[in-house]
């Protein structure tokens, strides 16, 4: 690939591409990501649609919160079990909304740690008004115009401080 063919103007995601320089030598060139530059809107749309579909199933009691996050974070049963250090058969049970009630606080904390969320968020969905509708604050591309939500962990693993404040204040 020639140097001029490889350049993409996308400062948000830079990368190194190996290209043929003008003198015929091959070498590195810093450029932008082609797929992010051209298809980011499509990625965000799919992500939002997936989250909204899973949230609906969650609200209807068709899936458990563990299943919701497992699918969102693209983890398999084996992988989640190994990461949370909870037996596979038990994780399988926790994916089923009828058996989710048997989960312990310790197990919830382990799942939350894998999903990188506060434990409390396994039992609630924070929605923000994006101007058109309420959407999950988990999808970072969803931006609320006038407020920000910050969740700060505390020394107590089961408690998080959720701070909702008006922006520019």
């Amino acid at each position: 690939m020639k140097e001029k063919e490889g350049f993409i103007d996308y400062p948000e995601q830079q990368m190194i591409l190996y290209v043929e320089k003008e003198d015929g030598k091959y070498g590195p060139m810093q450029t932008g990501s082609y797929i992010s530059a051209n298809f980011m809107d499509d990625y965000v749309l799919k992500r939002k649609n997936l989250e909204s579909e899973l949230r609906e199933q969650l609200s209807l009691g068709k899936i458990s919160p563990i299943k919701y996050f497992m699918v969102l974070e693209d983890l398999t049963l084996s992988e989640l079990s190994a990461r949370a250090r909870i037996r596979k058969s038990k994780v399988k049970k926790h994916l089923d909304p009828d058996h989710f009630g048997s989960v312990t606080a310790d197990e919830l904390t382990r799942y939350a740690s894998v999903f990188n969320i506060p434990t409390t968020n396994l039992l609630q969905v924070l929605l923000i008004n994006t101007g058109e509708q309420f959407e999950s604050h988990l999808i970072l591309e969803n931006k609320a115009k006038n407020i920000s939500i910050n969740q700060t962990p505390t020394e107590n693993p089961y408690v998080v401080l959720t701070k909702i404040e008006e922006k520019n204040k």
């Binding site: 690939m1 995601q13 990368m15 190194i16 591409l17 190996y18 590195p28 990501s33 082609y34 992010s36």
Partner: peptide, 12 residues
């Protein structure tokens, strides 16, 4: 392309 290959699945 994007996951750190230098382009074309490391071929470049």
């Amino acid at each position: 392309e994007d996951q750190g290959t230098g382009g074309a699945g490391f071929r470049f």
